[in-house]
Amino acid sequence: MKKILSHIILMLYILIIIIPFIFVLFSSLKENNIEIVTDPWGIPSSLHFDNYVMAWNNAKIGTYFFNSFYISVIASVITLGFGAATSYALTRMKFINLSKFFYTFILFGLVIPTGSLLVPLYKLITDLHLYNTHLALIFPYATFALPVSIYIICAFMRAIPSELEEAAMIDGLGALGLFTRIVLPISIPPLVTVFILNFLGNWNEFVMANFYLSSENLRTLPVGMVGFRDAFNTNYAQLSAGIMFSVVPVLIIYSILQEKIIEGVTAGSVKG
């Protein structure tokens, strides 16, 4: 009995989450605003896939999608590479006092509210002539993700037993070799976690992308979507199709990698 009540409550909550998507899906296939307004709950009378064609053409979603994708990948890869190397140096190499200092220094970045840096960073981006280039996003994205990434990777690397390294050192491996041949392969789980965490963060970032880019063909998906809304805010059917374009790929990837994604995103937070 109790179990059924639990299921009912949970199903209600799931409904709250899913209904907006269904609504948008239906709206995206309806003929026009009138059909949406007069029959919001109804299944579309006939399927108007042309909304998708128009949204794709009007919103340049293909371009935005590609931009978002490769900016997110590159920034995440930089964070991953730098983060792994630095974590290795901090946890495995024998410069204990120096490492303590740098570790604290880097972790200090965790308490800086990055939103507050938007205005000062704008000036820096301009001075470095990065404005309206994708580097204006890649560098800040990569940097802002470093503290938490290093925190996670360090926690893992610290726990690697030193016997492994010792054995390898007898085989004549240097510090660099230890890193690439021994420590990195072992550390793949946290690295994947960190990659997913950062990729999603970068993929979803809006404000910096909004202010640091100008050209239309450089825009990222969130910025493009908001621009699309501003331009076509009275055409709900097309707007809905646009939303579907930006949501569905993420949902597909999520359905495949859900375990890893949940692990990745939550890992970033457990640092209290």
């Binding site: 290795y88 960073l121 050192m169 510090a175």
Partner: peptide
């Protein structure tokens, strides 16, 4: 081996540089 300062610097420097510049 694990006190190789060159590797240490090489592994730390990029992070510290990015960090100092953009944060």
């Amino acid at each position: 081996t694990l006190k190789n300062p060159i590797v240490y610097i090489l592994f730390l420097l990029p992070t510290i540089l990015l960090y100092c510049l953009f944060m």
